[in-house]
Simulated assay, not measured.
Amino acid sequence: MCKDWTPGKFPEGRTASQRLREWIDAGAGGLDAVGLDLTGADLSYGDFSESWFTDAKLVNARLVEAELYRSDAQGADFSGADLTGCSLVRVNLDDAVLRDATLDLANLVKASLCDVDASGASCRGTQFRGASLLGVNLRSADLSNAMFQENSFQVTLDQNTKIDGASGSVFGPAAIVEGDVSRELSGAALGGWIKAKGGDIRVLS
């Protein structure tokens, strides 16, 4: 952590604010934010490598270009949060909520996303290479120019999911929701659906 770093805005809750101040004063180690309410805090550019955000509430928080390498954010609520350019390499995001969050240009290489609600999320140019996407809701999400590489891609997509310019390779199957009908596609069928929406993603068998 950079010794000169301070949050753009501290959390409003006294417990979370005090915990963050104590961690900054300590100047070393990961932040223990398990279960804390960090709603609306601006933690942009902070180094939170190997921290614990398990079940934390980060609704509308800002983590622009923050470093969360190998952190645990299982069950955390990032609804509406701004994680533009955030490093989420090898982060555990299982059961997290990323609804309407902004993850443009974020790095999720080898992150774990199991049973994640990322509906309406903006993931333009996001790096998903090697990440596990299992049971991820990507309905109405924007995956334009996102990059994949041999990702597990058991996700839910719909006609409002944007995939134009997305590239790389994934393993299916994916659930495609069209109106009130959901169908499972894999292999060439999934690849064709992605291509029709402007993506260039190879679906591996």
Rank of each mutant, 00 (worst) to 15 (best):
R62F: 12
A61Y: 04
G46I: 00
L63I: 00
F48E: 02
G75C: 11
T84G: 13
F48M: 05
L68H: 10
Y45W: 03
A66Q: 07
S51I: 10
L38I: 02
D42V: 01
A56P: 14
E50A: 10
L43P: 02
D72E: 14
Y45Q: 12
G46K: 02
L68T: 10
A41P: 09
V89T: 08
S87W: 12
A73S: 12
A76R: 11
F53V: 11
R62G: 03
A73Q: 03
D47L: 01
S71P: 06
V64S: 00
G40N: 05
D72H: 12
D47F: 02
E50I: 11
G80T: 07
L58K: 08
D82L: 05
A76N: 10
F48R: 06
A56L: 08
G85S: 03
V89A: 08
V64P: 00
K57A: 03
S71A: 14
F78I: 09
S49E: 13
D77A: 06
S71M: 03
T39R: 06
A61F: 02
L88T: 09
N60V: 12
A73E: 05
F53D: 07
L68Q: 11
R70A: 10
R62L: 12
L83D: 05
D72I: 14
D72T: 15
W52D: 15
D77L: 04
A56K: 09
D42H: 02
T39Q: 10
V59T: 15
A61L: 03
C86M: 07
G46F: 00
Q74G: 13
S49F: 04
L43A: 04
V89H: 14
A76M: 05
L83I: 04
S44V: 04
V59K: 14
G80P: 05
L68W: 14
A66W: 07
L43Y: 02
L58P: 11
L88Q: 04
L83N: 03
L43V: 01
G85T: 05
L58I: 06
S79V: 10
R62N: 11
F78N: 05
G40Q: 08
W52G: 09
A81Y: 04
D72G: 09
D55P: 07
S87T: 07
Q74P: 00
L38W: 00
A56D: 11
T54K: 10
G85L: 01
L38P: 02
Q74T: 15
S79Y: 13
